[in-house]
Computed example of a mutant assay.
Amino acid sequence: MASIRTEVVINADTEQVWGAIRDVGAVHRRLLPDRVAGTRIEGDVRILVLPNGKVIRELIVDVDDTTRRLAYAVVEGAQPALTHHHASFQVLPEESGRSRLVWVTDVLPDTLAAEIRERVERGAADMKRTLEEAVAD
């Protein structure tokens, strides 16, 4: 199994970043407005609608306010060749009112790791930009 770890320092308060991450129904507004057209929640499942109309279903495994950690698993709509996808976000405090977002993604098969890494790194950069723009507003 490939494990992809991406970290990004965000110029925003830890509680503000965690508030956006834990708001599982607002990915399209608070984290990835250019990559997710809509989000809805059905029980423990988050449904993401992409700009091209593709739908991805994610099981929300855990939202832990004490450790500021969100875990989820893609259960439908990922690439056909992807047989396993589990990920977590954790928000950690940094100096000077900044935050560190740690995104760990485990995927199978290993052959998709490079492609998934590229998506995760691009997603982390997009989230950083969106969260920092929210602070500036």
Rank of each mutant, 00 (worst) to 15 (best):
A12P: 13
R5G: 07
L101E: 10
G19R: 06
E42H: 09
E94K: 11
T105A: 01
V9Y: 00
H86A: 12
T66S: 10
R129N: 05
G97H: 08
G123P: 14
V45H: 08
V36C: 08
H86Q: 14
T83S: 15
H28L: 02
D106Y: 00
L92C: 12
D126Q: 12
I116D: 04
D23K: 02
G19L: 03
M1V: 15
A71W: 08
G53T: 06
E132W: 04
T39E: 09
D44P: 06
K54M: 06
G123V: 02
Q90N: 03
I56N: 01
A134C: 01
A12M: 07
G123W: 03
T39H: 06
H86C: 07
N11C: 03
L31Y: 05
A134N: 05
K128P: 13
G38V: 04
M127H: 00
A20C: 10
R30F: 04
A2M: 05
D13A: 11
Q90C: 04
A124Q: 11
D62G: 07
R46W: 01
D64G: 11
A113H: 01
M127A: 15
N11T: 09
A81Q: 15
P109G: 09
A71P: 05
A37E: 13
A20V: 13
G43W: 00
A136E: 12
H85W: 10
D137E: 13
K54W: 08
G123K: 02
R46F: 03
G25S: 03
A20K: 07
P51Q: 09
L50F: 13
V135D: 04
E58R: 08
E76L: 00
G43M: 01
V104K: 04
L108P: 00
V120T: 14
V120E: 09
